[in-house]
């Protein structure tokens, strides 16, 4: 089934977008492999930032360690490449010191949910105004293809040669349960939808989490017998997901075993820095 393209979307495609406005061209080429989805996600993020009208000087882009965490190096913001799993606490410190800045975290599924899992749930619990983009490729790419906390059961990886026996996390369910006030899923395949979702996440006040399914053909693809990067995207991202907008209209067998895409959870709850400023500081200062 092909996704219908609306007139509005066609128009957007035809408008050339100047990525160089946000990139550091002299830091390219990037380190990502041919067929990797990270570049598509980066482009969607830049278009969303542009649409949001954010000032480059006012954006901090913070990452941990891994393939996706190399993103900050390529973009012309205040960029911070931190320690494995620790992007969120570094970002928390920046946001606390400069609540007026837009702080965006780019992280991989291993970075965010394994070594950084504790920081992930607590950032969500605080509802601190960070936009967290989780590049989920279900594998540790930087270290050569080990299974990650989102690898499906049975997946082959260099540390699960006989098939993964650990059940995967659902990033969105964790974010929601932990208290994030904006939770969405996108994919590198649904590029325009992803741009829209990231834009919505950026506009949200509070912890916004976007889980982005994004294929690693080099490791996950080769080890799990995918024919190509496009085959992976079609199987895992296009056919493996269903939009929340369509899910109620589709018969049960078309939804079975698929991951939901789109904005899955959005509520209003006091944001951490605002609470700190209004509640704690005002009381302490006797206002």
């Amino acid at each position: 089934m092909s996704t219908p393209v609306s007139a509005e979307k066609k128009e957007k495609i035809s408008v050339p977008f100047d990525y160089n406005k946000y990139l550091r061209p002299n830091k390219l080429p990037h380190i990502w492999c041919p067929g990797c989805g990270h570049g598509i996600v980066l482009k969607a993020m830049l278009r969303a930032i542009d649409k949001a009208g954010l000032e480059k000087d006012n954006i901090a882009l913070v990452s941990g360690i891994g393939c996706s965490s190399r993103t900050p190096g390529y973009v012309d913001f205040n960029t911070l490449h931190t320690l494995h799993g620790r992007a969120l606490p570094f970002a928390t410190g920046i946001k606390m010191a400069r609540p007026d800045m837009k702080v965006i975290v780019v992280t991989g599924d291993g970075d965010a949910l394994a070594i950084g899992g504790n920081h992930f749930i607590h950032a969500c619990r605080r509802n601190i105004d960070l936009t967290v983009l989780v590049f989920t490729n279900a594998v540790y790419g930087m270290t050569g293809g080990q299974y990650s906390p989102t690898s499906p059961l049975g997946a082959i990886a260099t540390t699960s040669r006989y098939g993964n026996v650990e059940p995967p996390f659902d990033t969105c369910e964790i974010a929601k349960a932990a208290g994030a006030t904006f939770v969405a899923r996108g994919t590198a395949y649904h590029t325009l939808e992803l741009e829209k979702t990231i834009h919505e996440a950026l506009a949200h006040k509070g912890t916004s989490v976007v889980d982005i399914l994004d294929a690693c053909p080099t490791y996950f693809g080769r080890m799990n017998k995918y024919k190509s990067a496009t085959h992976m995207m079609e199987t895992m991202e296009k056919d493996g997901t269903v939009s929340v907008k369509q899910v109620d209209k589709l018969p049960a067998d078309k939804v079975q075993g698929k991951m939901l895409r789109g904005v899955l959870h959005k509520i209003e709850r006091p944001e951490y820095c605002e609470q700190y400023a209004s509640l704690v500081q005002e009381k302490a200062q006797g206002k």
């Binding site: 901090a60 913070v62 606490p89 928390t92 410190g93 920046i94 606390m96 010191a97």
Partner: peptide, 12 residues
């Protein structure tokens, strides 16, 4: 998280 946030705060 404590030291990481402190580094972030200092950088800001």
């Amino acid at each position: 998280g404590g030291i990481a946030a402190a580094i972030g705060g200092s950088l800001a």
